[in-house]
């Protein structure tokens, strides 16, 4: 078994008396693509929001295991930017780009937590700052090329076609040098051709050794990509296993068909 990257223990969160996540537990291991599926309103995005520090969870714990550390770090009380710095990055279900910044700058924002220059660096542009800035630009451009976005470099992000915006979000997340990437419905609103492109893209990203946890409704994508699948409903985990196991799991069928 590979090393743990993420361990979720008995995670619960309440919104005004409604339990959105209920004693949820699972883990992600190194070099795997895991998928989180479940009916609408099951709590998938809420879980992502807990993982990335947007919501403060009420009970349980989330442990993150960056490559260099053996003992996990608890994400309890951590701010989103601290979590990103530890190596967890995400995209959003409803695309949230910095629409009036250029495509390149969007990716450069992702480099923010890996660079240091501040006021004095900006004013004096000393050798260290120039070097850092050059690296930021180069790495960002390389990511754009990888994602097939090089043609848009100086375009405002808001002007991009929908599919390109989705890819730009992934590029921006990758720029933060994560070891675990969370994708929130990467294929939402895409046609079959685009979906199959995004499947290839995710495979390519994963082939660099990055682990991925994704939320998706498109079963073709989920079944063809995932090593493991977690099914949640009403904030609880109802099943876990590889695609074949999930397909034949009675609880999953029941949740999806509502029988």
């Amino acid at each position: 078994m590979n090393k743990y990257l993420l361990k979720i223990n008995n995670l619960s969160i309440d919104f005004g008396g409604i339990r959105a996540l209920n004693r949820l537990s699972f883990d992600i291991r190194q070099a795997e693509i895991a998928a989180l599926i479940g009916p609408n309103g099951a709590g998938k995005t809420t879980l992502f929001n807990c993982l990335t520090g947007i919501y403060a969870f009420s009970e349980g714990d989330i442990l993150l295991f960056p490559p260099e550390s053996e003992k996990g770090i608890s994400l309890k009380g951590m701010k989103p930017n601290q979590i990103t710095e530890k190596g967890l990055a995400r995209t959003f279900q409803n695309i949230r780009l910095f629409s009036r910044m250029t495509v390149l700058e969007n990716v450069m924002i992702g480099r923010h937590c890996r660079t240091r220059a501040y006021i004095l660096g900006a004013l004096f542009r000393n050798a260290a700052t120039r070097k850092e800035e050059r690296e930021t630009v180069d790495k960002s451009y390389a990511l754009l090329e990888k994602m097939g976005l090089a043609e848009y470099v100086n375009e405002p992000a808001g002007n991009l076609p929908y599919g390109a915006q989705r890819r730009l979000e992934i590029a921006r997340a990758l720029a933060t040098d994560p070891f675990l990437l969370l994708l929130d419905e990467p294929a939402a609103g895409m046609n079959p051709q685009e979906t199959s492109d995004i499947i290839d893209l995710i495979r390519e990203i994963a082939s660099d050794g990055l682990s991925i946890l994704l939320i998706e409704h498109d079963m073709k994508l989920v079944m063809s990509l995932s090593d493991r699948i977690f099914v949640i409903d009403y904030g609880r985990k109802i099943a876990e296993g590889d695609p074949a196991e999930i397909r034949s799991n009675p609880a999953v069928i029941k949740a999806y068909l509502g029988a």
């Binding site: 947007i54 989103p80 710095e85 910095f98 910044m101 220059a117 800035e133 930021t136």
Partner: peptide, 21 residues
Amino acid sequence: SRLGRAWIALREDETACQVMG
């Protein structure tokens, strides 16, 4: 600069900005 870009990103979308580190 790095700082200027961060300001503008903050103006555009606070939450996304935080999540980007």
